[in-house]
């Protein structure tokens, strides 16, 4: 430790600035999200679904990947957003952007109430609470069929053209543009959040709650804040789905959806925002392709992929890729 050779100290500011800066691969990635308009015009509906799921997965990443809260109930907020936006559209409030805001706010409000329970439990108990909530929400939505349409789904939603100009069309051009724009804006917010002191505090909670107490962090409040924000984002995703498909089904707040989004996130890699996007792409493209082969058994392959990733790539596909990238670059240097 007593260094005779004087090494220059590293520059902490340069290090942190590099962390927060938009990298070239990131910019390329976002530019490439525009390619489906030209390359896969027949798949724009699928692409907009991917954007919705990616946003949903990012909302889960904030609490699971960053703050370390496990949940299998996040579809509750997705569903609340979807039904809120759907009901608005059905009852004459067809303006999409304000519909999004109202839906996200509704989901966030419910998220804030539920956060009081969530921050009091951990591990298995927490998992059970989130599953319990999703069961209750689905049955409640089913029981309230005169409002929600029950198992028939919510029909008759009408959404006005976006910004008064872009009408939702059959080919999904507007749908994808709209979903992608919402995803990107939400992503920019999340990216700022995870690079902020608040984002650091979330990672601190994930890494070591005891230490967070010892540095005087109001942990529960921070968790409630991020849970509320995450619920709002999930609601936003649900609202986009409701507006672009002009229908809402009970499945939008079911257990399966809650589990699927976590699977996507684990596949792609937690705690890096892009993992959720990658996971959504893989999951939905695989479902689309494998369903053509055999619509009933496609979960078999997803199950196999999930096991493989969890066993051999601790940080998901994105983690594995970035390690590979580091190795390639390390060898090159």
């Amino acid at each position: 430790m007593t260094g005779a050779v004087v090494r220059p100290l590293p520059d902490p500011h340069a290090f942190l600035a590099r962390r927060a800066r938009w990298s070239a691969p990131e910019i390329l990635f976002w530019l490439s999200t525009l390619l489906p308009f030209w390359l896969f015009p027949d798949y724009l509906s699928l692409a907009s679904q991917i954007a919705v799921w990616a946003l949903f997965a990012i909302s889960v990443d904030l609490i699971l990947g960053y703050a370390g809260i496990v949940t299998l109930g996040h579809a509750v907020f997705f569903g609340i957003g979807a039904y809120t936006a759907g009901l608005l559209g059905k009852h004459g409030w067809g303006e999409p952007l304000s519909g999004l805001l109202i839906a996200a706010t509704a989901a966030a409000a419910v998220g804030f109430l539920i956060s009081f329970f969530v921050v009091r439990a951990r591990h298995l108990a927490l998992l059970m609470i989130t599953i319990g909530i999703v069961f209750m929400a689905r049955e409640a939505a089913n029981a309230l069929h005169w409002i929600t349409g029950g198992s028939d789904g919510l029909q008759g939603i009408r959404i006005d053209p976006v910004l008064g100009r872009f009408e939702f069309d059959l080919w999904g051009t507007t749908a994808y543009g709209y979903a992608l724009a919402v995803l990107f804006v939400a992503f920019v917010f999340c990216r700022r959040l995870v690079n902020s002191p608040f984002g650091l505090a979330l990672q601190g909670i994930r890494e070591n709650p005891t230490r967070m107490l010892a540095i005087g962090s109001p942990m529960r409040w921070r968790l409630q804040q991020v849970f509320t924000f995450s619920a709002g984002l999930a609601g936003l995703a649900g609202a986009v789905l409701a507006q672009t498909t002009e229908t809402v089904s009970l499945e939008s707040l079911g257990f399966q959806r809650s589990a699927d989004v976590v699977i996507m996130l684990i596949l792609g890699g937690t705690g890096r925002l892009y993992g959720g996007i990658l996971g959504a792409v893989i999951f939905l493209v695989a479902r689309d392709q494998l369903s053509d082969v055999n619509p009933r058994y496609w979960y078999f392959w997803i199950g196999m992929l999930l096991i493989g990733v969890v066993l051999f790539m601790r940080d998901g596909l994105l983690g594995g890729l970035s390690r590979l990238w580091d190795r390639v670059r390390g060898r090159g240097a």
Binding site: A17, F198, A201, R222
Partner: peptide
Amino acid sequence: CERRGIAGHAWRTVG
């Protein structure tokens, strides 16, 4: 940041 009461700030980066 926790001591200074700015650990709840979510917009500006840490740097």
